[in-house]
Computed example of a mutant assay.
Amino acid sequence: MANGWAGDGAVQEQIDSTVEDGIRRARSQLREGEGLMHCEECGEAIPAARRAAVKGVRLCLRCQQEQDRAEARFSGYNRRGSKDSQLR
């Protein structure tokens, strides 16, 4: 069946590629090793419970929330290239 310019399975390839990119990005943000006693951004003490719960923690909860909000603004790359996504 003719799909125009896209080959057979092109949509699934785009989905797979988007999922793989998301997994790669998430894995790159994982920390390892010993966490810090004080936040590297503001210098506030990081509670022992947070250090025990989050491996390799480097930020206090407040700074981590700020960083998470900033990263949430990054919406990723829309591989479908719809006009709506290009207008953002």
Rank of each mutant, 00 (worst) to 15 (best):
R58P: 08
G35F: 00
C42F: 04
E41Y: 12
E32P: 14
V57G: 01
R51C: 01
G43F: 06
R31N: 14
R31K: 13
C42Y: 02
G56L: 05
V54L: 00
L59S: 04
H38C: 05
P47C: 00
C39Y: 08
V57M: 04
G35P: 02
A49S: 09
C42T: 02
E34I: 02
R58D: 11
E32Y: 15
H38S: 07
L36I: 13
R50H: 03
L59Q: 06
L59P: 01
V54R: 01
E41M: 14
A49G: 06
R58W: 08
M37I: 10
E32H: 15
A53V: 05
G35Q: 00
H38A: 04
G43K: 04
G33Q: 07
A49T: 01
E40K: 13
L36G: 12
G56W: 07
A45N: 09
L59C: 06
I46Y: 05
R58K: 11
A45W: 09
A53Q: 08
G35C: 00
Q29S: 08
G33W: 06
Q29I: 07
L30P: 08
L36A: 15
H38K: 05
E41S: 14
K55S: 11
G33A: 10
E34H: 02
E34S: 01
R51G: 03
P47I: 00
G33D: 12
G43E: 07
C39G: 10
A52F: 10
G56C: 06
Q29M: 08
G43C: 05
C39R: 04
K55V: 11
C42A: 05
E32I: 15
V57P: 03
A45G: 09
V57N: 03
R31A: 13
Q29Y: 08
